[in-house]
Simulated assay, not measured.
Amino acid sequence: MDDLPSLTTAETAARLGVKPASLYAYVSRGLLTRMRTAHGSRFDALEVERFARSRRRADPVGVVPGSPLMVLDTDIALIEDGNLYFRGHDALELTRERSFERLARWIWGQPDSAAPFVVDSDAWDAARSLAAAVPGDAALTRMRAAVLGLGAHAAGADTAATPQAAVRAGERLLAVLPRVVGGSAGFAEESVAKTLAVALSGRESTPELVAVMDRALGLAIDHDLAVSTLAARVAASARSSAYASVSAALAAFDSPLHGTVSRDAVVLLRRVHAGQSPARALRAGDTARFGIPGFGHRIYRGPDPRALAILEDIAALDHDGSVRGAVAQLSAAVRDRAGLHPNIDLALAALVLAGGLRDDAGVVLFGIGRVVGWIAHIADEYQRAPMRLRPQGRYTGP
Rank of each mutant, 00 (worst) to 15 (best):
G183I: 01
G136F: 10
A138R: 05
G275H: 06
S41E: 11
A354H: 03
L103E: 08
A232C: 12
G373Q: 05
K194Q: 14
V63F: 14
E47K: 04
V134M: 07
T37A: 09
L219M: 04
G291N: 08
A77R: 02
S121M: 13
I314H: 06
D360S: 05
V118R: 14
A376Q: 04
A160W: 00
R55N: 02
G291Y: 02
A242C: 07
P391W: 09
A127V: 12
L72Y: 06
R306M: 05
P278C: 10
A146G: 01
L219Q: 09
L282W: 00
T9Q: 11
L174V: 08
V234F: 00
Q329H: 13
L351T: 13
L94Q: 14
G294D: 12
Y26T: 06
A354I: 07
E189P: 02
V363H: 03
L46I: 13
R128E: 12
L148V: 15
D254Y: 10
A193K: 05
D318I: 07
L217S: 12
V167C: 04
S262D: 08
L269Y: 07
V48W: 02
P278H: 08
P135E: 04
M143T: 05
T260C: 12
L269P: 10
V363F: 12
A155E: 04
R388C: 01
P305V: 13
L173G: 05
D2F: 07
V63Q: 13
L217A: 13
T396M: 12
W374F: 13
R36K: 15
A10R: 15
A332N: 11
S6D: 11
L150E: 03
L23C: 08
G369C: 09
S245C: 03
G183F: 00
G218I: 11
P303C: 08
D254L: 06
A77I: 01
A127S: 10
A326F: 08
A349S: 12
G136H: 09
D336I: 02
M70F: 11
E11N: 02
D158A: 09
V363E: 15
G285E: 09
A316I: 08
D320Y: 10
I314F: 04
D90W: 02
I79H: 08
L177I: 10
Y243D: 09
G367I: 06
L351Y: 03
A127W: 10
D254P: 00
D3F: 04
L389N: 01
R370S: 03
D336C: 03
E189N: 06
A354N: 04
M1C: 08
A284I: 12
L257T: 15
T260F: 00
A328W: 00
G136C: 12
A52R: 09
T95N: 12
D360L: 05
R335E: 14
A139W: 00
E171C: 14
D81L: 07
V27M: 02
L103I: 06
E101I: 02
G397E: 13
R271V: 04
T33C: 04
G170I: 12
P398F: 05
I292F: 01
V147S: 01
G151T: 07
V371M: 05
L69V: 15
E189R: 14
D254E: 13
R179H: 09
D214Q: 07
V327H: 03
G259N: 11
R50S: 14
H39I: 03
L130I: 14
A188P: 02
S41T: 10
R168A: 13
